[in-house]
């Protein structure tokens, strides 16, 4: 081994391109891409397909950049939690400094490029989203309050609003409702995960609701948020982006989401432990279906109205 090799460590640990991609949390990015795309396409203003594609790409890149900043700051707790221990920074593939540099540069590129490709309102909301996720959520709320994901969830709720702003250059009741759907969906989604991943958060000292107030309170909170989400999601059907397709989907998905939350609320802790949190895992998986289903229905509605020239009702 040469001196240089000894200095930079083993070659097997050297980061490959995929490790840098992993830094951007590609799975989260897929959700960002989808919801932002829905925001662009349901808007009543035509956007050139190439501009729309580029705008969605840079919204996703901005989301990825905030993911890199999150991995930079959270490298210590990521190493403790089983779920996150294989991320590039705790795995020793990418250094903290690299994660920070990549996060900052990609944030800058994403915001500037979105401003140039679409408009500066959309770019401004994207910049705020990155700030909100990296600073307000990651650096402040996450380690301080059990309400961390409630407020921090706003960061994940902005993409459809940015997509809408790409097309319209502004904010309206429709984009606020799309924001509200993801905002109210985030707590039940993550708390369902926390119900069966409690040990991870507890070990890392992250004050998730399950850690600070226990599973019983968390189950109540899941139900309350699911119940509050339903009227907001259904209300979107009666705006310019809604119609019968979305209404049918929203009624079905929300009924199932609230009923699932009701079942979790009434579930006995011993029973949950006995079947290794089967119902909680199922609810967590369904929460993903719920979100993709709701936004997919909005998209289908837009295709029905704008693509086929049919009436919303």
């Amino acid at each position: 081994m040469t001196d240089a090799t000894q200095q930079i460590g083993s070659f097997e640990d050297e980061a490959q391109f995929g490790d840098y991609v992993a830094l951007l949390k590609p799975r989260v990015m897929s959700l960002v891409v989808f919801t932002a795309a829905v925001g662009v396409f349901v808007a009543p203003v035509y956007v050139h397909p190439f501009v729309a594609l580029v705008a969605i790409l840079f919204i996703a890149l901005g989301g990825g950049a905030s993911g890199a900043l999150n991995m930079w700051y959270d490298h210590d707790i990521d190493a403790i939690m089983k779920r996150t221990s294989k991320r590039p920074v705790p795995a020793g593939k990418v250094t903290k400094g690299e994660a920070l540099t990549i996060g900052l540069w990609l944030s800058f590129i994403a915001v500037v490029m979105l401003g140039l490709a679409a408009n500066w309102v959309a770019a401004g909301i994207l910049a705020f989203t990155i700030f909100f996720y990296a600073v307000i959520y990651t650096m402040w709320l996450k380690r301080w309050t059990p309400q961390n994901i409630v407020i921090g969830g706003a960061a994940g709720a902005f993409p459809p609003m940015i997509g809408w702003a790409v097309a319209t250059g502004g904010v309206s009741v429709e984009s606020v409702l799309m924001f509200a759907i993801i905002f109210m969906w985030t707590p039940p989604h993550f708390w369902a995960l926390a119900l069966f991943m409690n040990e991870d958060y507890s070990k890392a000292g992250v004050p998730m609701l399950t850690v600070t107030h226990g599973r019983r309170v968390t189950r109540t909170h899941i139900f309350v948020y699911a119940a509050l989400l339903a009227p907001l999601a259904v209300a979107a059907a009666f705006t310019s982006i809604g119609g019968w397709i979305y209404l049918v989907a929203a009624l079905y998905l929300n009924a199932k989401f609230v009923f699932g939350a009701w079942q979790l609320w009434h579930r006995d802790e011993d029973a949950a432990e006995a079947d290794t949190y089967k119902a909680e895992k199922k609810y967590f998986r369904f929460s993903l279906t719920y979100l993709f289903g709701s936004f997919g229905a909005l998209l289908a509605q837009a295709i029905w109205v704008q693509g086929f020239g049919m009436g919303a009702w």
């Binding site: 391109f17 840098y20 580029v54 490029m113």
Partner: peptide, 27 residues
């Protein structure tokens, strides 16, 4: 050989970026 995937990835990313700038300019 060791850095091939990294170099290829960076190269393709830069090529995509150039294409995006070109496409946006055209549009």
């Amino acid at each position: 050989t060791r850095r091939f995937s990294r170099n290829l990835g960076v190269g393709l990313t830069l090529a995509c970026f150039v294409f995006i700038i070109f496409g946006l300019t055209y549009v």
